[in-house]
């Protein structure tokens, strides 16, 4: 079964381009601004949208994304509202793949089955759940696949040749390669080292490989785009939400979409 994610990466491959993947937290800084951001991302050049499900204790994320989570929660965001946000987005955009990213507890509390049904109905294409490694696949990964959702897994520099098959098993959509050992928004990755890692992983899978963590500027994004199938930028966009929220929703939307355009152009032109 082909998903929006499969189709999008196939299309990019055909055009000889890397994809640009954006991350923003749902409901940050507030529901309405978040909806406007989502709506604007595809035209600004986002090929795949990752939407963070806010959680109080995002232990694999850095200060920027934790702060985004707390802002969203303070503004009253819930998992049900996140799904509603996706539904609104999907009503206007039938093609751009949307991946929900977060931690397991809110999903577990919502009820895994109910969550999957509601996610499919809302128009979600894939899930990244940071604290569900392959060892816990029965919780969500297998039921998600059965319902036609992609379950996207993270591989990291510590994922050695022995571990990689476990990570790849039951993964679909794309593989998210975390370019550094560390949390989101930390030190920048070295493009050559990332390139080697991507080649190493490519030998074992046909899944597209997107690279993220620590990529903030167009030049860095372009360098990664030459080696990988996709480039993920999160903290750099989330920081703009934080910096502009006092100035209001328009300022946030303008700043984030301008940055998205600059990054997307660099990613899309990287292999020209």
């Amino acid at each position: 079964m082909s998903t929006r994610i499969d189709r999008r990466f196939a299309d990019l491959k055909e055009r000889g381009k890397a994809g640009f993947v954006t991350f923003l937290t749902a409901g940050d800084p507030d529901l309405e601004t978040s909806a406007r951001l989502l709506e604007g991302l595809p035209a600004a050049g986002a090929d795949v949208i990752e939407l963070g499900m806010p959680f109080t204790d995002p232990m694999a994320d850095g200060p920027a994304i934790q702060a985004a989570s707390l802002r969203a929660l303070e503004a009253g965001m819930t998992l049900a509202e996140t799904l509603e946000l996706v539904r609104r987005f999907r009503a206007k955009d039938a093609d751009t793949p949307l991946v929900l990213m977060g931690y397991f507890n809110p999903i577990f509390h919502y009820g895994a089955e109910r969550f999957l049904d509601d996610a499919v109905t809302a128009g979600v294409d894939g899930l990244i759940v940071v604290d569900l490694p392959a060892e816990e696949d029965e919780e969500l990964c297998l039921p998600a696949r059965a319902k036609g959702l992609n379950f996207i897994r993270l591989a990291t520099p510590t994922t050695d040749a022995k571990r990689l098959p476990a990570v790849l098993a039951n993964s679909s959509g794309f593989l998210y390669y975390v370019s550094i050992t560390g949390i989101t928004g930390a030190a920048a990755p070295v493009a050559d080292v990332v390139g080697e890692a991507v080649s190493r992983i490519r030998a074992q899978t046909t899944l597209p490989i997107a690279v993220g963590f620590g990529i903030r500027e167009p030049e860095a994004a372009a360098a990664i785009a030459r080696a990988a199938d996709g480039v993920v930028v999160g903290s750099a966009l989330v920081d703009l939400v934080a910096q502009n929220r006092e100035a209001g929703g328009d300022a946030v939307v303008d700043a984030v979409l301008a940055k998205t355009r600059a990054l997307a152009e660099a990613v899309h032109a990287a292999r020209d």
């Binding site: 397991f104 490694p133 060892e135 993270l154 994922t159 990570v167 975390v178 050992t181």
Partner: peptide
């Protein structure tokens, strides 16, 4: 119980 951790930690936990 279980092991609900980021993939980065899995090799170390094993």
């Amino acid at each position: 119980g279980g092991r609900y951790v980021a993939e980065t930690l899995m090799p170390n936990i094993l």
